[in-house]
């Protein structure tokens, strides 16, 4: 028995969600009395690889191959499957990021493994029974999914488990599997990434606004509030449909599903399709001038009031709070 975790790098660095996946995989390995191996693909420096030890990876397979500098799911899946075979891994963990979503299913097919994508808890392992809780029906329910294959693949939802440290020394081992040319048929031409902003799927805190804001010119105060909190910004669907905000900020049933520690909804009514993407947030704050807005029914904290008066007050209070 052994557990393998894939650690996705961005420009040679690991994000918090990666450390979270490592911590999650470590917790599984502990229940199995086995070790945890991580696999990194792309050019990551030794000190960054060593960081993985902090969260419990005792071995790191380092695949530093120039052909694999950019993420191509087909090739990465082959490498991860090779690593799983080499290590005799029967559980493979990834993070359910955008890339992870394109990668985990390919790894699963290669290993003839059952896959749970969007896991929100540690698996329950009881003899031959292996089941994992995952989000279903766009956050309206959870599905307990049993896997009966010899190898299991789990893609963990960001922010579902938390980052936990359990320091070991990570031994770094170079791993150089062969890369088939056909695995590199998709060619990455360009990567555009806003580095000055917190990306929404990873964010612990999110400030979101809807049609109640009246127009794109009023987002200044939303960005200021988010900036002070260190939060990402999000919006409702009509807002991105009207091009007030980019589509990448649209949360909900047809947008992205998030589960931050704090979700602040400003001028959003709380339609069922919106709630679908945000209801698993740990704490929900709703600011709406209509006391009957459905969003208040699922909120932890609420302010019935005009956003144009309330938000500036919050900004002042935050500035004072931060001293």
């Amino acid at each position: 028995m052994s557990v393998l975790v894939y650690v996705e790098q961005v420009d040679g660095k690991f994000k918090k969600s990666v450390f979270e996946a490592v911590a999650y995989a470590k917790a599984i390995a502990d229940t199995q009395g086995s070790n945890l191996t991580a696999i990194s693909i792309g050019n990551v420096g030794e000190s960054e690889l060593k960081e993985l030890g902090k969260y419990g990876a005792s071995k790191v397979l380092n695949v530093a191959n120039d052909q694999l500098k950019n993420f191509v799911n087909q090739a990465y899946a082959s490498v991860i499957a090779e690593a799983a075979k080499k290590e005799g891994a029967d559980i493979v963990v990834l993070s359910n990021s955008f890339s992870g979503k394109g990668l985990a299913p390919r790894v699963a097919v290669k290993l003839e493994a059952g896959l749970v994508e969007g896991a929100v808890e540690l698996p329950k392992i009881d003899g031959a029974l292996f089941s994992v809780k995952k989000n279903a029906f766009s956050g309206k329910a959870f599905a307990i999914t049993a896997l009966t294959s010899a190898i299991k693949v789990i893609a963990l939802n960001p922010n579902a488990f938390g980052v936990k440290e359990s320091a070991v020394d990570a031994a770094i081992e170079n791993f150089a599997p062969e890369v088939k040319a056909t695995d590199l048929a998709a060619i990455v031409k360009e990567i555009v990434r806003a580095t000055d902003k917190i990306s929404l799927p990873d964010a612990e805190l999110v400030v979101s606004a809807g049609r109640g804001l009246k127009g794109p010119e009023n987002w200044g105060m939303i960005e200021e509030l988010a900036g002070l909190l260190g939060a990402a910004t999000a919006c409702s669907k009509p807002v991105s449909d009207a091009d007030w905000r980019p589509h990448s900020e649209h949360v909900g049933q047809t947008g992205i599903a998030i589960s931050p520690n704090l979700y602040i909804a400003i001028g959003i009514s709380g339609a069922i399709q919106h709630l679908a993407g945000v209801s698993s947030s740990k704490v929900i704050v709703v600011i709406n001038k209509d006391p009957e807005a459905p969003f208040f029914k699922v909120a932890d904290y609420g302010i019935v009031g005009d956003a144009f008066e309330v938000v500036p007050q919050l900004i002042e209070a935050l500035k004072a709070h931060k001293g």
């Binding site: 329910a141 932890d300 904290y301 019935v304």
Partner: peptide
């Protein structure tokens, strides 16, 4: 062969009542 199966569904725990703060 079938290798995964949903064995049970759960619904999220209801949130407590909202705490209202005067505007």
């Amino acid at each position: 062969a079938q290798i995964s199966k949903v064995t049970k569904f759960e619904t999220p725990a209801p949130r407590g009542a909202v705490k209202l703060i005067p505007a």
